[in-house]
């Protein structure tokens, strides 16, 4: 998190409020790194679900950027497309939509993601909730049937059924194979099915220190513990922890959504609490909730707690009495 980008170039000294966190990357550079890291997931989406998915993703990126520019223009602010945040929101939103989703729906979700998820709070850096997830949550409530219609992957010959592994687990107690889930040859959202492609991008981001490793690690450990407890209770009903990690939007959520700089806690202790709590909510929703997947709602839910987590995880100042 670097200084706010609205600084007037006429001033040499940038005055911003705390917290001041030093980073190797400027906001703009870091944003573009995230865009590069999402390329494997985009390629996987095209490989498994066909060329039409590229149109969906391009649509959401274009509409996000246009919405952001339009709002900035009407509010008389500097138009900042090149900071990449609108592009990331568009990419992420496109990747978490179901395959062959309608283009009008994609555009609507993108407008909501940017207008209601980000700009209404004051733009980049002020939003409480992850914009892409706000857009998807809106679409989920607006078009519940198209949003849960999963086409089969078109690439492979012996593809699994069009149900996602999670809904197959929830409603039919069928567990999908691990190799297919790792590669992405399963039903699911565009960019969420290929765990491998997401892992490549995510590990790249962690390696170059654009995202903090603590949140994904906390989420993974937590899902292993909480998912593992139920698996040990009854392995026939509850899936094993590896299934939890590879299925649905868990990796996408852990590496790209929960680690969003704006909507995640500021310090290490807070990040551990945040990651652990997200996974607990995910496991509860997946195993006991009405929906098969809970990553989106879990992250949005914990986004709301971030100010509280920040308040109670302030590190002790050196020399301060206990």
């Amino acid at each position: 998190m670097s200084t706010l980008t609205t600084a007037n170039p006429a001033y040499k000294l940038e005055l911003t409020s705390s917290p001041h966190i030093h980073s190797r990357w400027s906001t703009k550079q870091a944003m573009w790194m995230v865009v590069y890291a999402l390329i494997p997931a985009v390629i996987a989406a095209i490989v498994f679900f066909g060329f039409y998915q590229l149109i969906i993703i391009s649509m959401s990126v274009c509409v996000c950027v246009l919405t952001e520019s339009a709002i900035k223009y009407f509010r008389g602010r500097e138009i900042s497309i090149m900071d990449g945040s609108g592009i990331i929101t568009g990419l992420l939103l496109g990747l978490i939509l179901p395959p062959n989703f309608s283009l009008f729906g994609t555009a609507l979700g993108s407008v909501v993601a940017i207008a209601l998820g980000k700009e209404i709070f004051g733009g980049l850096g002020f939003n409480i909730f992850n914009p892409a997830l706000v857009g998807r949550a809106f679409l989920q409530a607006t078009y519940p049937v198209p949003m849960t219609t999963w086409s089969e992957p078109s690439y492979a010959v012996d593809s699994v059924s069009s149900a996602t592994p999670l809904s197959a687990m929830k409603f039919d107690a069928v567990f999908a194979g691990k190799t297919e889930m790792l590669l992405g040859n399963i039903g699911g959202s565009l960019g969420e099915t290929s765990s491998l492609a997401i892992l490549i991008g995510g590990i790249f981001l962690i390696a170059i220190q654009v995202v903090n490793w603590r949140i994904p690690v906390a989420m993974t450990l937590s899902v292993i513990v909480f998912g593992g407890i139920f698996w040990l209770i009854d392995p026939a009903v509850y899936p094993d922890p590896i299934f939890h990690i590879l299925s649905g939007g868990f990796l996408m959520g852990a590496l790209f959504m929960a680690t969003d700089w704006v909507t995640s806690p500021l310090n290490s202790k807070g990040m551990w609490i945040y990651g652990t709590a997200i996974s607990l909510v995910i496991v509860i929703i997946r195993l006991f909730g009405g929906l098969p997947e809970g990553v989106m709602y879990a992250i949005l839910f914990m986004n709301g707690f971030v100010p509280l987590i920040n308040k109670y995880s302030v590190p002790r100042i050196f020399g301060e009495a206990k």
């Binding site: 009008f104 609507l108 209404i120 078009y143």
Partner: peptide, 22 residues
Amino acid sequence: FEPWLIMILPAGAFLTLGLMMA
């Protein structure tokens, strides 16, 4: 036109009210 189901749900009421108040 495909109806936006969210507008009939309580969430739609809060969204519309908030935008109108703004």
